[in-house]
Design a protein around this nucleic acid. Structure first.
Length: 784
DNA sequence: AAGCTAAGCGTTTTT
DNA sequence: CGCTTAGCTT
């Protein structure tokens, strides 16, 4: 077979495989087709980056591996080529002959890893891959840095000989703060801000540089403050190890360490992943760079995609250097720029370009578009933030009148603190909205409590989570008892759990033995269930046996109601996880819980306006975007003005914000705004001035919006991310004999019903949980 | 042990 | 302003 025939065949085949290929520009195609060697794709905002990544993966499979191997159809001839052409022309792709020509996938597993920063991006990629490549796409690792590391460590962390086992738990930031606080107590007392502002960042930075406590101590030199922190670092690491827990930094750091210490493990993964792809490369930090270069070290098929203009995570260690010096670090790297924007109108794009060009440290890239000019950017000035919020609400309502959907609007702001006044305006105007970020589902008190129970069940050495649950719900085992137990635990080097388990052996607990051992018996019982019942059943049992649910139900107010609802969401999340996972385990579920971000759950199916910080908005797009609070001191933030690098980061942030808009951009600022309890007066942001006048309609004096009465308390119509389902007002009447379903207790029969204070007290005999008393409006029952 | 009140403090945030 | 937390009271 002639080479050119093969080439033509492969080309044609790829066109058919990748339905989107025909719509790509030449640069996108080049990025898709260049499958060997290091490649840097500088992808501007809205340039079809995800499409390129996904098609590139398809192309590696169908073209890269297959081209040089036996995975070609036998006896290919000119007729086949003609046939493929006719398929393309007619657009009919479904028959047997064609399938035979396409069915030349390389053997499984498909050796590709695509690393992203958020689960959302990973999931999007997974979905697109499986719709394009079918079931075998599940061979491909499309995951975040952290989930990749978790998977690698679960398998082999014991080979590090550091005392960790593969069933480790992951500590999130809150856990870390709590743990570090204990470790800092000796040198800083109860100073919380010392922990969050000094200890945590310094230790985090040390970990990122791959420094363990000993190396950190050595690097501290004579600096007495750092020496003290080294002691904290030792303590902290020891506490983590005792709890068999990893923090987010450890997950990356220990993976690199594992690769260094055990070359055979690294080699295994180098062979497993012949092709490595990294999305949002501009946001990688040093460990991540290290990890990527180790993984790709053998085959050098590393493709990184990023936009130096969208690097906005410097504050958490991302170094823009990684992308700026890619060509230097990976010799013979090819660079492809994607500069055509498919997202925004030319006005919006020109505005974004005009702003970002004021930055010095960039690769240089000028986005252009064939899209129409569109409306000018509206820039509006207000006296205060209620006025600004009102304007946003009014403008959205006008849009709705004009036939737009709520979901086509997004409000972006620099900091979460800005959301409340906009929220109030939306509540008044009856605009449905949701806030992304703020607090996450798994950060809610009740969720953290139940998850803490699960952590302890999995690993009884987890003192941190144990002390969290020991008195939640209240069971009269208070802080004094825990403090004493902790001291005993340390002295006899036992876990807190074991001290409580054997509390009868310690004189101190003599008066509390019955209470404590009752609690411990429940825990032990639950522990016995771990491997015997499905995960979501286990979680239900935890909620019941611990008395947590009963305590909430006894509270009987709207807040408790919401918490119960959240808990049943947790149960259904677990059930969902079990359904989707090949090998559901408790630690797998906990891992997913720890690695889950708020934005990951955002789907735009519900028709609501979306509010979020600019950071959260990266990667999203909306027809109409409002950027609120464009003021010096807010955006750019107060502390960034003095430092050129930070100012450039703010400008990149502004660039990200502007480029979220597809059709219409509104920028607003207030002359004064209430911030943290006092009014601050700011000048309009310099970024506004950087947008050329001919691209904006400035409304400098808005008619003073008359002060609207703000309701004393904002009604809780706030559509939180998870609890989108509206609470159905229970007008249902239950009478004795009815069969009902409860979210947690399952099926039961109503024994009695008594009207009580506007609600009804039901006594229900459940099939598996005995007889319970519940408030009707509360319990979210359904009649069967 | 639990509840209440005064005091403090407050970028951006994923994992 | 609104939330968390320390520390005091019962």
């Amino acid at each position: 077979m002639q080479d050119n025939m093969i080439t033509e065949f492969l080309n044609l085949r790829h066109k058919i495989i990748s339905a989107e290929f025909s719509r790509m520009n030449e640069f996108q195609r080049e990025a898709v087709l260049t499958t060997n060697g290091p490649l840097l794709v500088l992808a501007g905002a809205g340039s079809g980056k995800t499409t390129v990544l996904v098609n590139r993966i398809a192309c590696i499979l169908k073209y890269g591996d297959a081209a040089n191997s036996e995975y070609m159809p036998q006896g290919l001839n000119n007729n086949d080529i003609t046939y493929l052409k006719s398929c393309l022309e007619s657009g009919s792709f479904a028959d047997e002959r064609l399938s035979a020509l396409l069915a030349v996938d390389p053997p499984a597993p498909w050796k590709i890893i695509a690393i992203t920063f958020t689960n959302k991006a990973a999931n999007e990629m997974k979905n697109r891959l499986s719709s394009m490549l079918g079931e075998k796409a599940s061979d491909i690792w499309a995951c975040t840095f952290h989930s990749a590391c978790a998977r690698i460590l679960r398998r082999d962390i014991d080979k590090l000989d550091m005392g960790y086992s593969g069933s480790f738990t992951i500590y999130d930031t809150n856990d870390v703060v709590a743990l570090l606080r204990d470790c800092c107590r000796e040198i800083a007392g109860d100073d919380r801000s010392f922990v969050t502002k000094t200890a945590m960042p310094i230790i985090s930075r040390a970990k990122e540089k791959n420094l363990d406590p000993a190396a950190f101590e050595a690097s501290a030199g004579t600096d007495y403050r750092l020496k003290k922190l080294a002691v904290v670092y030792y303590k902290y690491q020891e506490a983590l190890r005792r709890a068999n827990a990893l923090d987010f930094d450890d997950m990356l750091r220990l993976t690199v360490k594992l690769f260094e210490k055990r070359p055979e493990v690294l080699e295994y993964y180098q062979n497993r992943f012949k092709y490595v792809l990294v999305d949002e490369y501009q946001d990688t930090n040093h460990v991540q760079y290290k990890l990527v270069s180790m993984l790709a070290g053998k085959h050098k098929n590393l493709c990184v995609v990023g936009d130096d203009d969208q690097s906005i995570y410097r504050f958490r260690g991302a170094t823009i250097e990684n992308i700026l010096s890619f060509e230097h670090q990976f010799k013979a790297a090819r660079v492809i720029k994607l500069e055509q924007n498919y997202r925004s109108t030319s006005v919006i794009l020109d505005a974004a370009n005009a702003v970002i060009k004021n930055n010095a440290g960039r690769k240089g890239k000028n986005l252009w578009t064939e899209n129409s000019k569109g409306e000018n950017v509206t820039v509006c000035r207000f006296d205060d933030e209620p006025g600004e919020s009102q304007y946003i609400a009014d403008t959205i309502l006008e849009g709705i009148k004009g036939g737009m959907k709520f979901a086509q609007h997004a409000v972006l702001y620099r900091m979460n603190a800005q959301s409340s006044s906009i929220e109030k305006a939306f509540v008044r105007a009856g605009i449905p909205y949701r806030i992304i970020g703020g607090h996450r589902f798994y950060e809610r008190l009740e969720i953290k409590d139940i998850v803490a129970y699960l952590c302890v069940l999995k690993n009884t050495g987890d003192n941190l989570h144990f002390s969290r649950i020991v008195n939640a719900p209240k069971r009269s085992i208070g802080s004094a008892t825990v403090a004493a137990a902790l001291e005993i635990a340390e002295q006899v080097s036992m876990t807190l759990y074991d001290v409580f388990l054997h509390c009868d052996e310690f004189a101190y607990f003599s008066k509390k033995v019955s209470r404590i051992s009752g609690f411990m018996k429940d825990l032990e019982d639950l522990r016995g269930m771990i491997d015997n019942i499905p995960l979501h059943e286990l979680i239900k049992s935890v909620m019941i046996k611990s008395g947590y649910l009963a305590a909430l139900e006894a509270e009987n107010d709207s807040e408790a109601k919401e918490r119960i609802e959240n808990l049943s969401t947790l149960v259904s999340n677990a059930a969902e996880y079990e359904k989707n996972s090949d090998e559901p385990t408790l630690e797998g579920f906990l891992e997913e819980a720890a690695l889950m971000a708020d934005i990951d759950n955002y789907d735009n199916s519900a028709d609501t306006v979306v509010m979020m910080t600019v950071h959260s908005s990266k990667g999203l797009e909306f027809p109409v975007v409002f950027i609120a609070g464009m003021e010096e001191g807010i955006f750019p933030g107060q502390n960034s003005a003095a430092f050129p690098e930070e100012l450039e980061e703010e400008r990149r942030l502004a660039y990200v914000a502007i480029t979220r808009a597809k059709e219409k951009l509104h920028i607003s600022y207030a002359r004064g705004r209430m911030l943290f309890g006092s009014t601050v007066y700011n000048r309009p942001s310099r970024f506004i001035a950087e947008i050329p006048d001919e691209l904006k309609n400035s409304v400098n004096e808005r008619p003073v919006v008359e002060k609207h009465k703000i309701p004393a308390k904002v009604p809780a119509v706030r559509t939180e991310n998870r609890s989108v389902s509206q609470k159905h007002p229970t007008t249902v009447v239950y009478s004795p004999g009815d069969t009902v379903l409860h979210n947690v207790f399952g099926r039961g029969m109503v024994l009695s019903s008594k009207p009580m204070g506007g609600d009804t007290l039901l006594e229900i005999a459940f099939e598996s949980f005995g007889t319970k008393k519940l408030m009707s409006n509360f319990a979210r029952l359904t009649k069967e």
